[in-house]
């Protein structure tokens, strides 16, 4: 019976490097399927924006640009913190890694707060699609279509982000109990890949939703 000589090494792997590379591959496969998931949403938005440019531009101007910029910067800061956390763990600085993960968590929560305030504003202005939607003007139908896509796209992104926040909390706990360290940083590397992917989706969502119609 094979003996596991290194802590954290699963028996089907030769060494931790092979285990880490396999985990990374799994995450890249997941990311490539996620590209197709979000790709469908971006495609729907592109087709409808091309069909109804005036309605979509009118609707986009109802979004708060400053809130969008602040959210984007918060998410970029979380990406920065996540990368610092991984680099710190690789270089045996568990305390800095823990702090950086906490920073990532804080930035993610700030982003969710900003998005929540944007949702509240839309609800307050009766821009949530459905029975309570109110918009005066000839483009009302297309504005409602924009907001439907806005809520679906940002909602799915927020769901991914929330899952990511849960994963980061788990990583912080693992760092705290010394299950993650300089020799075994694979799980944090995979979590970082996921988090960066969530950041990439927002990097494309922000200009698509907030900027394309002009201000």
């Amino acid at each position: 019976m094979a003996q596991t000589q290194t802590a954290g090494l699963q028996e089907q792997f030769e060494d931790l490097t092979q285990q880490r590379e396999t985990s990374n591959l799994g995450m890249w496969i997941f990311i490539s399927t996620e590209c197709l998931f979000f790709g469908g949403l971006f495609l729907a938005f592109t087709v409808l924006r091309h069909a109804y440019p005036v309605g979509f531009a009118t609707a986009a101007r109802h979004l708060d640009l400053l809130s969008g910029i602040a959210g984007t910067v918060a998410l970029l800061a979380s990406t920065l913190a996540m990368s610092i956390g991984l680099a710190a763990l690789r270089n045996s600085d568990r305390f800095l890694s823990f702090l950086a993960c906490f920073g990532t968590l804080a930035c993610g929560l700030i982003f969710l707060g900003l998005e929540g305030s944007e949702y509240f504003r839309a609800w307050h202005e009766h821009l949530v699609p459905g029975g309570s939607f109110q918009f005066i003007g000839p483009e009302a139908g297309h504005v409602q279509m924009f907001f439907l896509l806005y809520f679906v796209m940002t909602g799915f992104h927020a769901l991914h982000l929330t899952i990511g926040l849960g994963v980061i909390v788990c990583m912080m706990l693992l760092i705290m109990i010394n299950r993650l360290h300089a020799e075994r940083y694979g799980p944090l590397q995979v979590a970082a890949l996921y988090w960066h992917f969530v950041g990439i989706i927002w990097t494309l969502l922000f200009p698509t939703l907030y900027l394309l119609g002009g201000r």
Binding site: I29, I31, S32, L36, G39, F42, L43
Partner: peptide, 16 residues
């Protein structure tokens, strides 16, 4: 992993 990253981009491109 490069292959999968490239495949994701390729299928995204085909879709679009």
């Amino acid at each position: 992993s490069w292959l999968w990253a490239g495949a994701g981009l390729l299928w995204f491109g085909i879709l679009f």
